[in-house]
Amino acid sequence: MKKSVFTKKYKKLRELLVQYRDEANVSQVELAKRLGTRQTFISKCELGERRVDVVEMMLIADALGIDPVDVIKELKKVSD
């Protein structure tokens, strides 16, 4: 099994996080404030320079007002 960061599903996760943030009309700076972190954390996650774990994904989803289960459902549609 290859590392998850090199899969189509992980790329889709990053794309979804950007998409949901954009749809919520939330900047990286605002999302970082909501999470109590820095904008660079958000940027690195979205660019794939930092791995997002499941707990972080849930926190990001909550901060954007989306259901983390919806994110997972979208990822299940992607074949690797």
Score class of each variant (00 low, 15 high):
53 D>V: 01
70 D>S: 12
52 V>N: 00
75 L>Q: 02
53 D>L: 04
68 P>S: 10
62 D>M: 13
53 D>K: 05
68 P>I: 08
71 V>Q: 05
78 V>N: 08
57 M>K: 08
53 D>Y: 06
64 L>R: 13
55 V>K: 01
75 L>V: 09
68 P>H: 09
61 A>L: 11
69 V>C: 06
65 G>Y: 10
77 K>T: 08
61 A>T: 06
47 L>D: 02
52 V>H: 04
70 D>H: 11
74 E>H: 14
68 P>N: 12
60 I>F: 13
60 I>E: 09
77 K>S: 06
54 V>K: 08
51 R>M: 04
48 G>C: 03
74 E>G: 15
53 D>F: 08
73 K>W: 03
52 V>M: 03
50 R>F: 00
52 V>E: 06
50 R>L: 05
73 K>A: 07
63 A>Q: 10
55 V>I: 09
75 L>M: 07
55 V>C: 00
55 V>G: 02
48 G>V: 03
77 K>V: 09
49 E>I: 00
50 R>G: 03
54 V>A: 03
64 L>K: 12
56 E>G: 05
78 V>H: 10
58 M>R: 09
69 V>G: 05
74 E>R: 15
76 K>R: 15
52 V>Q: 04
51 R>H: 00
75 L>F: 10
70 D>M: 10
76 K>N: 10
56 E>F: 15
72 I>Y: 01
59 L>M: 13
73 K>E: 01
49 E>S: 00
59 L>Y: 13
77 K>N: 04
60 I>S: 09
53 D>H: 04
75 L>E: 07
49 E>F: 02
51 R>N: 05
51 R>F: 02
67 D>T: 12
65 G>I: 14
53 D>A: 03
68 P>D: 06
56 E>K: 10
57 M>S: 01
64 L>D: 08
74 E>N: 13
67 D>G: 11
47 L>H: 00
56 E>W: 14
63 A>F: 09
50 R>Y: 01
77 K>R: 12
55 V>P: 06
60 I>P: 02
55 V>E: 01
59 L>Q: 15
70 D>N: 13
78 V>T: 12
58 M>W: 05
63 A>M: 12
49 E>W: 03
47 L>I: 03
51 R>T: 02
57 M>N: 05
63 A>V: 14
47 L>S: 00
49 E>N: 07
76 K>H: 12
50 R>S: 02
65 G>Q: 14
68 P>F: 06
64 L>H: 11
76 K>L: 12
50 R>D: 02
63 A>I: 12
76 K>F: 15
75 L>C: 07
73 K>C: 04
70 D>C: 09
65 G>S: 12
55 V>Q: 07
71 V>R: 04
77 K>Q: 08
74 E>L: 13
62 D>Y: 14
66 I>D: 11
54 V>E: 04
57 M>H: 05
47 L>A: 03
47 L>W: 00
59 L>R: 14
71 V>N: 07
75 L>W: 12
59 L>F: 13
63 A>R: 09
63 A>E: 09
50 R>E: 04
